[in-house]
Structures are given as structure tokens and as C-alpha cells.
């Protein structure tokens, strides 16, 4: 990896160079009851909208790569016959300015499933290949447990990665395009002092993690505790609302539905992102529901993320961003659930 440093006030130059593209970044959406700022990824139209000091976003950036609704194909129906059209919709390269390590790791996990090798998804892959990503270091929030998931740092899946050293940015360069762009800025090699400052800052960041999960032997423990009564307890709380999957950067399940236009001459096939907590997630033709109760649905959410995926890819399908727990009105969080399985006790 190549490391460079540029002066803090040159960040705007970097923004200006990229501003001609569809540029998505963190911006302020409002404040909650307690005065806590709430952020969202959205299109940025001026440098001042870009808030690289954001805590974390309420929703992940999934809507830009795996939209909640997407047309997979459309059909023209004429003379008793039909013609199919597929539009991958990849006309607009996107710049993502300001992704935290967890979110870049989230993309890397999605890639494993959606870009192949078994069933590559051309809609996702098309968008993914047309992304320019600028990562940025974060300050851990009380709900972040990425450190436990090994996703607090990121080694690939971005073009450049910024760390604010105070008056300078320390930048890790991963792609030739990123390097070319940076040559328009007064970049210099980092000094020994810059190295020290970077390590200091990372130590400081590390000391700020307050939330963690004990993942050791988790796949085995999940196997052992398949029938555990704790699942029933969590099931009683769960509202089967799907908010957790909606906000999750790594959930990718979807359903496909056909729509016929009112004039009966056109039709579309659309996918809709779904959640394994929704009541009919495992309902099949004929009406049988393999997971009719909220407890088994919630359980399988954890089994997919922390057991099935772990077995298939040797990593969990969770980056510890904590969004699901923040979004869950029933207060169901990953650390609490995993803890309860280990200790066989659900917090009141």
C-alpha cells in the first residue's frame, strides 16, 4: 500500500475534482430527542453538506447498490408474444466519499455472495464495479462492536482511505485512479512524525470501543443451543417488522414479484429486499410456513449471520455496525442476543 499526506484545507480540492460525478456521502438529517445528530448517506451537492465527522448513518448505503426495490426486467406484450428487456442501469459511476471501515467491509462481504462465483448478480455487480470509494476513519460509538467482528479496519475494497491527523490527512492509496487524482493535490510522503501521529490516533480510537461481543466458538455454541429457551424469549419481543434487515449493510435477501401495467401491454419483474424476520419469509406455495413463529425467524437471522455464513466463508455476515440494534424498537441488539445464548439468560 502507498501512503501519502496532504494538507487539511486541500480536502475541498479533492471534493471539487470529484464533484462532477454522482457523489454520495454522509450528511446531517436531523437530531433525535436527546439532541444526538442523525446522519444519512445521500447525494452531496456542496462541500459544506459533506460531514466526514459523522457518527454513523441510521441506514447503510445499501440503497445505492442493492436498492429496496429494483426492476430486474421489463416485458413488452404484443400479438400474444412477449419481448424481454433487461437494463442493468449502470450508466452513472458513483463516488462514495466517507465510508467507515465497517461499511467497506460490509461491501466486501456482499461481494462474496453477489459477485460470484456461484450466482453473480449483474445488477449488484454492475453498480459495484462503478464505484469509487473514499474511506474515512471513525470514532467508535456506544453501539459499535466492529472490533469484535474484526471489521474495525479494512485492507481492501476502497480506492483511498483518509485519516484526519489534525491539520493534515493521512491517505492510504489503493488504486491507480486514486493516485492520479491525488497528484492534483500537494501530496507528500508521510514523515516519521506522521507515522507516530497515525499510530497514536489508532491507539486512541481502539481505546474508545465500549461495546463488544464474545464470538469465541460461537458457531459451535449456536449449534449446541439450537433448542435453547432464550430464542423464545427474544421471539416474544420481536415485532417481525424487518427494520433490522432494512438498515443492515450485509442483509441481501429479496423476493421477486411481477407487475402487469394497467393497459396489459407491458409488465415488469421487480425485486424487493426482504427480511427473514417477516412472517412469510419461509412461506411456500400451498401456504405452508416453515417458520411460522417469530422466535424461529429471529433465531435463523442469527444462524445465517453467525453460523451458516461463517461456515461457508470463514467469517460472519455482520460487521458490527450496530445499526440493527439502534433501529430495533424492541431493543434487540446483536451483542445482547449473542451474550444471552452464551449465558442462557435474556436481559429484562
Amino acid at each position: 500500500m502507498l501512503f501519502k499526506v496532504f494538507p487539511g484545507n486541500e480536502l475541498e480540492t479533492l471534493y471539487d475534482i470529484l464533484a462532477g460525478h454522482h457523489l454520495v456521502g454522509p450528511q446531517l438529517r436531523g437530531t433525535d430527542l436527546n439532541g444526538q445528530e442523525l446522519f444519512a448517506f445521500d447525494y452531496i451537492h456542496s462541500f459544506t453538506e459533506l460531514r466526514l465527522d459523522f457518527t454513523s448513518t441510521v441506514h447503510s448505503l445499501k440503497s445505492f447498490i442493492l436498492p429496496p426495490r429494483e426492476t430486474l426486467s421489463s416485458f413488452t406484450l404484443t400479438n400474444g408474444d412477449w419481448e424481454k428487456h433487461v437494463d442493468l442501469g449502470i450508466y452513472k459511476p458513483h463516488v462514495f466519499f466517507g465510508l467507515h471501515p465497517c461499511d467497506i467491509n460490509g461491501l466486501n462481504k456482499l461481494d462474496k455472495v453477489l459477485t460470484g462465483p456461484v450466482y453473480p448478480d449483474p445488477f449488484y455487480t454492475g453498480k459495484r464495479k462503478n464505484m469509487f470509494i473514499i474511506g474515512v476513519n471513525c470514532s467508535p460509538q456506544p453501539w459499535c462492536f466492529c472490533k469484535s467482528m474484526g471489521t474495525d479496519t479494512v485492507l481492501s475494497g476502497f480506492d483511498m482511505f483518509l485519516t484526519d491527523l489534525g491539520d493534515r490527512y493521512f491517505v492510504e492509496i489503493q488504486s491507480a485512479i486514486a493516485y492520479d487524482i491525488l497528484t492534483e493535490l500537494p501530496i507528500v510522503d508521510p514523515t516519521e512524525a506522521d507515522h507516530r501521529r497515525f499510530v497514536e490516533l489508532m491507539d486512541e480510537r481502539n481505546s474508545k470501543f465500549t461495546c463488544q461481543v464474545d464470538n469465541s466458538d460461537l458457531t459451535k455454541i449456536l449449534d449446541l443451543e439450537f433448542q435453547s429457551p432464550v430464542w423464545q424469549e427474544w421471539g416474544k419481543k420481536c415485532m417481525s417488522c424487518g427494520s433490522c434487515a432494512s438498515v443492515c449493510p450485509t442483509c441481501y435477501c429479496y423476493g421477486v414479484k411481477e407487475f402487469v401495467d394497467l393497459d396489459l401491454t407491458n409488465a415488469t419483474k421487480q425485486r424487493q429486499l426482504y427480511s427473514c424476520n417477516l412472517i412469510d419469509f419461509a412461506m411456500v406455495a400451498g401456504g405452508h410456513n416453515f417458520r411460522p413463529d417469530s422466535a424461529s425467524r429471529l433465531k435463523y437471522r442469527y444462524y445465517h449471520k453467525h453460523r451458516g455464513f461463517q461456515e461457508a466463508y470463514e467469517e460472519a455476515l455482520c460487521v458490527g455496525c450496530g445499526r440493527c440494534g439502534q433501529a430495533c424498537l424492541a431493543g434487540i441488539t446483536v451483542p445482547d442476543v449473542i451474550d444471552s445464548v452464551r449465558r442462557q439468560e435474556v436481559p429484562k
Partner: peptide
């Protein structure tokens, strides 16, 4: 068959409970 929350979060809304408003979603 699922509740309004699924559509609400899919639309990228910030939950109204966070803003202090009740919702039957």
C-alpha cells in the same frame, strides 16, 4: 403480511419514535 415499518425503513426514513412521535407502524 408484514408491518408498515418494513416499507418505512426501506424508504430510508428516520423512525419517528427517535423524534419523539408515536407510530403504529
Amino acid at each position: 403480511r408484514y408491518p408498515v415499518c418494513m416499507e418505512c425503513t426501506a424508504n430510508g426514513n428516520i423512525c419517528l419514535f427517535k423524534l419523539g412521535e408515536p407510530c403504529l407502524g
